[in-house]
Amino acid sequence: MNTIKSKGKSHRSGARVFTTILYALLMIAVAIPLSSAAVTELSVYPDYPVVGEDIKINGTAQPDEVLDITVSFNQTVNVSDGTYKYRIDDVEIPDGSNTFQVRGEKVKDLNVRVKILFWITKSADADSGVATVSQSNVPSGTYDIIIDGHAEDGESTVNLTINASSSIKADTEGYFEDNYTTNSIPPGIFELSAGKINETITLYEEPVVIQPEYDVYDANQNCIIEMGELSAGIDDFFTGHLSINKLSQLIGYFLSGDTYCQN
C-alpha cells in the first residue's frame, strides 16, 4: 500500500474514494428490480443449535395465512430378540391444531405409547414392512413417548421417522414467528418446514466454535474494512481485478464502520 505523502494527494485520494462510492451505489440501485409481489421467507436461529436449545423461526407469508410448521427426524433403532424400542421424553405439544406421526420401516407392527396420566397405546400392522401411526389434535402438554414393536425377520435395525406438525397464523402484515424446543430431538440432522419452504438443520451435542472468515482485503484481520483496505479494493476494481458486486460489499463494510464477521 502506498503511503500518502501530501495533503494534495490525500485530497485527491479522498475524492476518488467518494466518487467510486457514488458510482457503486448507483450501479446497485440500477441492479435492484422493482417489485411489489409478496415474498415468502423463512429464517431459523441459531445457526448452530445445541440439543436442548430452542429453535426460533420467523418469516413472511400472505397476510393472515395459516401455515403448517413441521419438524421431522429419522432414527435408526437396533433390534433385540426380534423387537425394537425407542423412547422420547419431554415431547412438547403446542396449543392449537397439531399432528404427531411415526413411520416405521422394516417392521411387522408399530406401537406408539404416550404417557398422559397413564400409558395410552395406538398401534398399526405393517404393509410390506412399513407401518404408520398418526394422531391429530393432541392436547397441549409435555409427554413421554415409547415407540416399539416387532421387526421383520432377520433385520438387525429398523428405521423410524418422526414428524410433528402444528399450525400458526401470520399476522395482518404476513409476519410469523415461533419457538421449538429440541429436548426430544437427537443430535444430527432434522428437517423443519414452513409452508413449502424446507430447512435442513444440524443439531449439535456441544456448542460449535466457528473461526471468523476474514475478507481478503482485511489486511489486519480485525473484521473492519478501513480506508487503506478500501483503497486497495478500488485500485483492483479499476484494473479489472475486482467485480462491482465485491466492491459494493467493501464499500458497505467501510461505510458501516461495524465488524462484518458473523461470529
Rank of each mutant, 00 (worst) to 15 (best):
residue 118 F to P: 00
residue 157 T to M: 05
residue 58 N to R: 09
residue 97 S to C: 00
residue 249 Q to L: 14
residue 211 Q to Y: 11
residue 19 T to P: 00
residue 132 T to L: 09
residue 112 V to S: 06
residue 154 G to C: 06
residue 3 T to S: 13
residue 230 L to G: 05
residue 185 I to F: 11
residue 47 D to Y: 03
residue 6 S to C: 06
residue 118 F to M: 12
residue 46 P to F: 04
residue 90 D to H: 11
residue 173 E to A: 11
residue 82 G to K: 02
residue 157 T to V: 13
residue 30 V to L: 13
residue 43 S to Y: 13
residue 122 K to D: 14
residue 189 I to D: 07
residue 144 D to G: 04
residue 94 P to I: 01
residue 83 T to N: 09
residue 136 S to D: 12
residue 240 G to H: 03
residue 218 D to S: 12
residue 13 S to G: 00
residue 6 S to D: 08
residue 31 A to D: 11
residue 135 Q to E: 15
residue 254 F to A: 10
residue 251 I to A: 13
residue 4 I to K: 01
residue 171 D to E: 01
residue 144 D to C: 02
residue 164 A to T: 08
residue 114 V to I: 15
residue 262 Q to T: 13
residue 186 P to Y: 02
residue 250 L to H: 08
residue 77 V to N: 02
residue 221 Q to T: 14
residue 45 Y to G: 01
residue 71 V to M: 09
residue 204 Y to D: 01
residue 188 G to R: 01
residue 178 D to S: 12
residue 188 G to E: 01
residue 206 E to Q: 12
residue 8 G to H: 10
residue 157 T to Q: 13
residue 229 E to H: 12
residue 88 I to D: 00
residue 170 A to D: 07
residue 225 I to N: 07
residue 118 F to T: 14
residue 177 E to N: 11
residue 253 Y to M: 11
residue 25 L to I: 05
residue 76 T to Y: 08
residue 70 T to W: 02
residue 221 Q to F: 02
residue 139 P to R: 03
residue 69 I to W: 03
residue 181 T to H: 02
residue 47 D to W: 00
residue 37 A to E: 14
residue 214 Y to M: 15
